[in-house]
Design a binder for these strands. Structure first.
Length: 472
RNA sequence: GGGCCCGUGGGGUAGCUUGGUAUCCUUCUAGCUUGGGGUGCUAGUGACUUGAGUUCAAAUCUCAACGGGCCCA
């Protein structure tokens, strides 16, 4: 069996670096830090993830838009907290040719400040609401810390939904919908996750509150793959997004955003991959089945014909497949496709054809079996479903085994992954725990209110649980 | 912001201390061979980040720039 040089369990970070390049996802040789090249296979994969996101957006009546990349400084500066949060990591455009610009432009780090002045033009009446938009674009953030493919980059492939509502309640309803969207999507990616409400000092710049969506990587560190923000009317006021109510008054909109990025791909790689390479959930696998004809001189005809017949049958079932008839040895092809995480491999050789059968190999378990060629596409469909299920189950176990709820800092230091401790609500107490655990606050669980224990730092009655983790 | 380390074919490397012909593996190309887990053989392409300095001579020593990585705040 082929293995990566670095084992996933021994040095996850190194393993990750090795795998993203070996599997042809990206090329990191571009000479600007944090700006990598999407290679064809990686880009296909990302497109499938985007497709799932679009499907969810369309189902929930969001409209796709595309705003300009450049934002005038004056637009950007309207909301104070927002500038403070992003100011240090924006790229500026100062010249056009040799001429200095009268007003500087910036590359969007996110699109609130590009969109909202325009929203204020679009929205006149309560009948224009809710306004539900989204776009999938690249955003730019000048990261100074260490970059990592798909996880911390300077040019980010980004999904952002922006909505405007008549009031806080309707915006809250949107946030419920966003949570459902996240759930559907992450199920399809076989990625179990946790929602946490970020503490006040760690929320998105300008938000009323922020819900983060985190997955747990096998290294024990969390990866935030999305966030949902309730803005209330924090942006609507400076950007003057108001509407005329039924009664003829004027009122500010309440807004939400929902963002996700190429980190989803990072999570797919990290959570499902193994020492043989990627393991892709069938929903997003660029190829769901690879067909390898076993060619012997003189017998290639029947083997290739059988392969083509199967491919056509798979096509009718909307299963993405490819016949690898390259002139290299079969073993070589196995390695290749295992590295790329193709969920199922079908081998068709003279032996199979004779028996009216084909050989089916699972990427997750490596198990091989011979199945009848009649109705093979149905069997394959079932196997794909089962594989998706197994991926989810394994990932869920990883998450559950690494989520802990404890009462003292002492106990917390013994744990890996996500640790929840009682919290009194005082920032200093949380920061103290961050220090000792060498981790960060993730936020409070959103599903439960309250905690009847005591803060492990100051001893006061706890208001809630607070989660801590080392994160990417 | 402060400190440290590193730049050699597409990838991984040896050589640097003590200056002189750049090593090996892999990939790639061509041909034959082989083909149910990386087939074998033959031939071939391809590199010292850039600039300045020291020197008869620099991958090697010095300085700088650019690029990459790590640690601390």
């Amino acid at each position: 069996m082929p293995e990566t040089k670095v084992k996933k369990s021994e040095d996850f970070n190194e393993w990750y670096n090795e795998i993203v390049e070996l599997a042809d996802l990206c090329d990191k040789r571009y000479p600007i830090k944090g700006m990598n090249i999407w290679r064809p296979y990686g880009w296909k994969l990302m497109n499938h993830v985007d497709r799932l996101i679009r499907d969810e957006m369309i189902k929930t009546n969001h409209q796709e838009v595309c705003f300009p990349l450049l934002i005038p400084e004056s637009y950007f500066k309207k909301e104070e907290e927002h500038i403070e949060g992003f100011g240090k990591e924006v790229f500026w455009v100062t010249h056009a040719g040799l001429t200095p610009l009268e007003e500087r432009w910036l590359l969007r780090p996110t699109s609130e400040t590009a969109m909202y002045p325009i929203f204020s033009l679009w929205i006149r009446s309560h009948t224009d609401l809710p306004l539900k938009t989204f776009q999938i674009v690249n955003t730019f953030r000048y990261e100074t810390k260490q970059t990592r493919a798909f996880i911390r980059v300077r040019e980010i492939h980004f999904f952002e939904a922006h909505t405007c509502h008549v009031d806080f309640t309707d915006a809250e309803r949107q946030i419920q919908e966003d949570k459902e969207i996240a759930d559907h999507l992450l199920q399809k990616l076989s990625l179990p996750y946790v929602f946490s409400k970020r503490p006040e000092w760690d929320k998105f710049a300008g938000a009323y509150y922020t819900i983060s969506i985190d997955v747990l990587m096998p290294s024990g560190r969390t990866l935030q793959i999305g966030s949902i923000h309730q803005y209330r009317d924090n942006f609507a006021k400076p950007y003057e997004i108001s509407y005329e109510t039924e009664k003829g008054d004027h009122s500010f909109c309440h807004q939400t955003t929902y963002g996700m990025s190429e980190r989803l791909l990072g999570a797919l790689v990290g959570v499902h991959g193994d020492n043989k390479g990627l393991v892709m959930p069938p929903e997003v696998a660029p190829l769901q089945v690879v067909i390898i004809p076993i060619i012997f001189k003189g017998k290639e005809q029947t083997v290739l014909e059988t392969s083509r017949t199967l491919q056509n049958e798979l096509l009718e079932e909307n299963i993405r497949s490819f016949i690898d008839d390259r002139d290299i040895t079969p073993g070589n092809k196995y390695y290749d496709w295992e590295l790329k995480g193709v969920p199922l491999r079908v081998e068709i050789g003279p032996r199979d054809v004779e028996k009216n059968a084909l050989t089916l190999v699972r990427r997750d378990s490596g198990l091989k079996k011979s199945i009848p060629i009649t109705n093979a596409e149905q069997m394959i469909k079932t196997e794909l479903k089962d594989l998706e299920h197994i991926l989810y189950t394994n990932a869920e176990k990883l998450l559950k085994d690494n989520m802990h709820q404890v009462l003292t800092i002492e106990e917390a230091t013994q744990k890996t992954g996500i640790v929840a401790l009682p919290w009194c609500g005082n920032k200093d107490c949380a920061l103290e725990i961050e220090n000792v655990l060498e981790g960060n606050t993730l936020g409070e669980p959103i599903e439960n209110a309250g905690c009847s224990e005591h803060c492990p730092v100051c001893g006061s009655p706890a208001k809630t649980w607070m989660r801590y983790a080392r994160s990417y």
